[in-house]
């Protein structure tokens, strides 16, 4: 992790984080969140539930209005350490095209390292290494505009990885790309997470993706409505319905099979949340 001491051994520690874009309406209403180093946390919730606002606070893109937030041991309210924080916590945004600073892939990926003080050679080496990590080795000279959405999003991920972050926040990074692109990005995230042991906070509407996380955080109306293992949270249909979400396909299929009497009603925690889990449960 970074040079600083990590508060309580946590990669992210949020206490009572509040935010209002306009007077009289709270977009974050006292968010408490702890994320352990190396953990993959999926943050889910309907549009307007405060997911993106929280993500922007993690990178100090928004000024903290109330509460406290520490990311990778750095206080997001400390203006003197904001650039250190942005190096330690990288962000991948929703639209891959709107993150491209340069039309040349290698130049785009080297942009972050240059800003954080790397010289030309170091920036290029970091870009080459990061592109290799996301499966785009040899793409340095390619025109970013000719790449597929999935490839562009992997370039965006490489741009973040080139800065060697401890925490990576993906803000609905798969919502504008096709299923193949989503799979490519998911594999790339898994690969670098295994290799570097980085913490990943994945904000998503994709319940199948959330089902593969270590932990799921459900946001509802600017608050954390629930937090727990996917097997506990994603089977709570009342909670998901209240948060404007629906259970993963595996859970819905399992419930339908239970209702049809094909399978016996499952004990708490036994309902499969992933397709693989469903197949295992059905085929033994």
């Amino acid at each position: 992790m970074v040079e600083g001491e990590i508060a309580g051994g946590l990669a992210v520690r949020a206490r009572g984080v509040r935010h209002s874009y306009v007077r009289g309406r709270e977009d974050l209403r006292g968010v408490d969140l702890d994320v352990a180093p190396g953990e993959l946390v999926a943050v889910i919730g309907e549009n307007g539930s405060g997911k993106t606002t929280l993500a922007r606070h993690l990178n100090a893109l928004l000024a903290l209005q109330a509460g406290s937030l520490t990311v990778a041991g750095l206080d997001t309210a400390d203006p003197a350490r904001v650039w250190e924080l942005r190096r330690a916590c990288g962000m991948v945004f929703q639209n891959p095209e709107n993150q491209l600073v340069s039309s040349v892939v290698g130049e785009d990926v080297a942009f972050g390292p240059r800003n954080f003080g790397a010289d030309e050679g170091q920036a290029r080496a970091a870009a080459r290494r990061a592109l290799g990590e996301v499966g785009l080795a040899g793409f340095e000279r390619r025109d970013a505009h000719t790449l597929s959405g999935g490839q562009q999003q992997r370039v965006a991920l490489a741009a973040v990885l080139a800065c060697e972050p401890d925490v990576v926040v993906l803000d609905e990074a798969t919502s504008m790309i096709d299923p193949r692109g989503r799979d490519e990005l998911t594999r790339a995230v898994e690969a670098f997470r295994c290799e570097r042991g980085a913490t990943v906070i994945w904000i998503t509407h994709d319940m199948e993706l959330a089902a593969r996380a270590d932990r799921v955080v459900v946001m509802c109306a600017g608050e954390v409505a629930a937090s727990g293992a996917p097997a506990d949270v994603l089977v709570d249909e009342a909670l998901l319905s209240r948060a404007g979400l629906e259970a993963p396909l595996a859970v819905r299929t399992w419930r339908a099979l239970e209702d049809a009497g094909v399978v016996a009603p499952s004990a708490p925690g036994a309902c499969p949340v992933t397709t693989e889990g469903l197949v295992r449960a059905l085929c033994g």
Binding site: R56, L61, R86, G90, F93, V101, F111, N115, F116, C163
Partner: peptide
């Protein structure tokens, strides 16, 4: 916003 997140000032 993306540039700011990548350390541009």
């Amino acid at each position: 916003v993306a540039m700011e997140a990548r350390g541009y000032r």
